[in-house]
Each structure stands twice: as C-alpha cells, then as structure tokens.
Simulated assay, not measured.
Amino acid sequence: MSTISIILVAIVAFLAGIEGVLDEFQFHQPLIACTLIGLVTGHLVPCIILGGSLQMIALGWANIGAAVAPDAALAAVASAIIFVQGGADTKNIGTAIGLAVPLAVAGLFLTMVVRTISVAIAHIMDKRAEAGDLRGIEIWQLIATSLQGLRIMLPAIALTFIPASVVKDFLGSMPAWLTQGMTIGGGMVVAVGYAMVINMIATREVWPFFIIGFVLAAISQLTLIAIGALGAAFMLLYLQLEGKGGSGNGNGASGTGDPLGDILDDY
C-alpha cells in the first residue's frame, strides 16, 4: 500500500471513529467506510461488496441502555484493510466477514478506554464552564472527539504496515475447513442481523411488503434503482391505506379529503 493510500486510509478511519459518536455523516457505517477505503486503495467494487455484507450484520447492532453494541466502525475499517492487503479477492470476502465480528467485539475494549477518559474530560469541561472559559470548553470537546477518531485510526495504521505478502500467506495458509466455516458463519451472522431488524420493525401490516420485497429481489433484471422506486411506491401506498383505515368512517374521508396529505401534514 502506497504512502498516499495509507494517509487516506488513516483519514477515513479517523472520520469513521468520530462518526461513531457524532452520527452526522454516517462514516462509521460499514457500507460507507468500506466503500471509502476501497476508493482510496483502488479496490472500490470488492470493498463495496464487503461493506454491503457487513452492513447487513450491523443493522442489528444498537446501543440499548447501558449495553454497548459491537464497534461497527473498527469492524468495517479493519476487515476492509485486511481484505485489501490480501489482494481484494472476492473469494476471501467470507473470511473478511468472519474476522469482522471478533474485531467488532475487540473494539469494545477501546471504546471503554476512550469513554473512561471522556468522563475525566467532562469534569474538566465543567470546571472550564464554571470559570466562563468557553474557548477551553471547545478545545476539550475537540480533544474528546479526536480520541474517538484515534481509537480507529491507530489500529488502522498498524494494519496498513503489515506487508501484503504476509496477509496473503496468512489467508492462504488457513485450512479449507476454517475458511469455509468462517464463510458459513459470516452468512449466518448476516441473516441473524437482518432477522433482528425485522423482529424490531415487523408488524402485521408490513409483512406483505416484506414478502413482496424478497420476491422482487430475486428478479435479477430489476436494478437497485427500480427496486428503490418500487419501495417508494409501496410506502406511498401504505400511507394511503393507513389513512383510509384510520379515518373511522370507511370511506377514506378525513380532513381535506386527501389522506396522504393529512398524514404528511401531521408530521
């Protein structure tokens, strides 16, 4: 990996780290992080495929109460770097996905360290606030945010200095039963992640749309744009049906006579 690529990968990793707490531009999402790393390393398409697979896993990850979800940013960045260092062969995507899950769990340790330090920084910011030092508050806020970026950037830089030949030899030396097992396990994790999302949002009213979506996804002639357009059409259809069903008079008359308009006005 060239020096410029290493610098760009470090920038992407830093942005992914700070986005893990900011949630402004979603750089920490696997699909975006892997795509950016593929872009700066010259392996765009394979990394998009990897990011899409990892995104299906991360869909089911969420912070609930005091329980912190696995680190999607570190999983995406580290697995993408390993994947690129190994030659970005699509045959190794299953192995990269299998490595992503333990990397995400390992990232929880770095998250705990940074958040522990952030508690001390918060107390410092309280003292700066008592003193009326707004500039000091801003500086310490930037420091705390930068620590979130460094927790991803430093491991990413370390991985880039591992020779590509070493990574290729490592991947090549793995026995077939292990690589196949990681591929199968990675596919199962993707299915479990998607099932968790369905379990959270599925209702009796939307199940027909899930079924239609799976059927349409099997039609290879349909592009993603076409499927997205159908999804938007189904959304509008659902809003129309919901408006008519919730009017209480059976004829869909509500407010202005336009159920969709009334629903959108409510929001």
Rank of each mutant, 00 (worst) to 15 (best):
Q85L: 13
A232R: 01
F170D: 01
R204C: 00
L241A: 07
V105E: 04
D258I: 02
F170G: 14
V192N: 08
L237N: 00
V192I: 15
G181R: 11
S165D: 15
S118I: 03
Q148A: 09
G149H: 13
F27I: 11
A156K: 04
I7D: 05
E19D: 15
A33Y: 01
L147P: 01
S5G: 09
G245Y: 06
A73E: 10
I137D: 02
L171M: 11
G248F: 07
G98Y: 04
G243T: 03
Q29I: 06
G38L: 11
D71A: 14
K244V: 00
G52W: 10
S146Y: 02
L39E: 07
F83N: 14
I162H: 00
S79M: 10
K168I: 14
I152P: 07
I121F: 14
T116E: 12
I211M: 14
W207A: 08
I219F: 15
Y194N: 01
N251D: 15
V114P: 05
L54T: 10
K127V: 02
I117D: 03
E19Q: 08
E205C: 01
G20R: 15
M112Q: 15
W177I: 12
G193A: 11
M188Y: 10
H28P: 00
P30D: 10
S53H: 08
F209V: 09
L237Y: 14
R204N: 13
F25G: 00
D133F: 04
I211C: 05
A106P: 03
R135C: 04
I117S: 10
A144Q: 13
D126S: 06
L103G: 11
T41A: 05
G186V: 06
W177F: 15
Q141F: 07
I37V: 10
V215G: 04
L134F: 08
V167A: 04
L99P: 04
I97P: 04
S173M: 12
Y267W: 12
D169M: 08
I198W: 12
I227T: 04
M196Y: 00
A62V: 05
I49Q: 15
G107S: 14
A176C: 02
A202G: 12
A13H: 11
P163M: 08
L147K: 01
Q148Y: 14
T203A: 08
I124M: 01
T90A: 09
C34E: 07
I32C: 02
A78K: 06
D71Q: 13
G186R: 12
V12K: 07
A226V: 03
A120L: 07
I162Q: 01
I82H: 02
L36T: 04
F234Q: 05
